[in-house]
């Protein structure tokens, strides 16, 4: 695969190294002369000095035959321009951009950037897991906005142990007037996709009785994540 990386910050540098080790063809385009000089010693002639939003420089970097362009400059707006040029002027098949501001994710997708890597969210995920202790493993962000695939192992003391999977989907509303307990479907966009027990992958039928140490793979949204987490691991 021929990959053009625009921006040789720490991210661009390490990505270039990884790809070169994996025997891919790589060109790194970097604007700053000083930075290029440093990188020439480290990476060799794959580093080119040039502006990733300049059509002439992009052509020089070989964009006409690039399979993938990765925009990793430190500015979201610049990364957008790079991807749009790659896509529309050079018909590059796959464009990837890094973004710092999570709110830019939607506009990047709408404008046709193929993959958006949201640095802020990735850092937050990792920090959350480290600081708060165990929480969902975020496996993948799906194409649908704010929706992701997560996994969790059910702890031994969770209320859900020994109950049917269907109960995960039920929210008990505290009733004010002493009438019978109201139950409401709280799930808008989340559901369990598979339950792994030991060596067995099981279909998540609503009758399935959950056990401790079951591994649950579920689709959920930012809004419902904490609720689902509470249901699967908490005491209620």
């Amino acid at each position: 695969m021929f990959v053009v990386i625009v921006g040789c910050s720490a991210t661009g540098y390490h990505l270039a190294k990884l790809l070169m080790v994996a025997q891919h063809e790589v060109v790194v385009l970097e604007k700053s002369q000083a930075r290029c000089q440093l990188m020439w010693d480290e990476l060799g002639s794959v580093v080119m000095q040039g502006d990733g939003t300049d059509q002439v420089d992009l052509r020089r970097a070989g964009l006409t035959r690039a399979d993938t362009v990765v925009a990793v400059t430190d500015r979201d707006a610049t990364n957008l321009v790079i991807c749009q040029m790659a896509k529309l002027s050079f018909s590059v098949q796959r464009t990837v951009a890094i973004i710092r501001d999570p709110r830019n994710q939607t506009i990047f997708r709408v404008l046709g950037v193929d993959s958006v890597v949201n640095v802020g969210d990735l850092v937050l995920d990792t920090l959350e897991r480290t600081v708060v202790g165990s929480s969902f493993n975020h496996l993948a962000y799906l194409g649908v906005p704010n929706t992701m695939l997560v996994s969790i192992t059910i702890p031994e003391d969770a209320t859900i142990v020994g109950r049917k999977l269907a109960e995960v989907y039920i929210r008990e509303e505290p009733s004010d007037n002493g009438s019978e307990e109201e139950e409401e479907d709280f799930f808008q966009g989340s559901f369990v996709t598979v339950v792994v027990r030991g060596d067995l992958a099981m279909e998540p039928s609503s009758e399935l009785v959950l056990e401790a140490n079951d591994e649950i793979y579920a689709v959920t949204t930012f809004a419902e994540e904490s609720h689902l987490y509470q249901k699967l691991t908490g005491i209620w």
């Binding site: 707006a77 610049t78 957008l80 321009v81 830019n104 506009i107 404008l111």
Partner: peptide
Amino acid sequence: GDDHENILLSQMASHI
């Protein structure tokens, strides 16, 4: 004064 910022903002205004 920043071309790239203007591109991002204006496309956001028109597409979102």
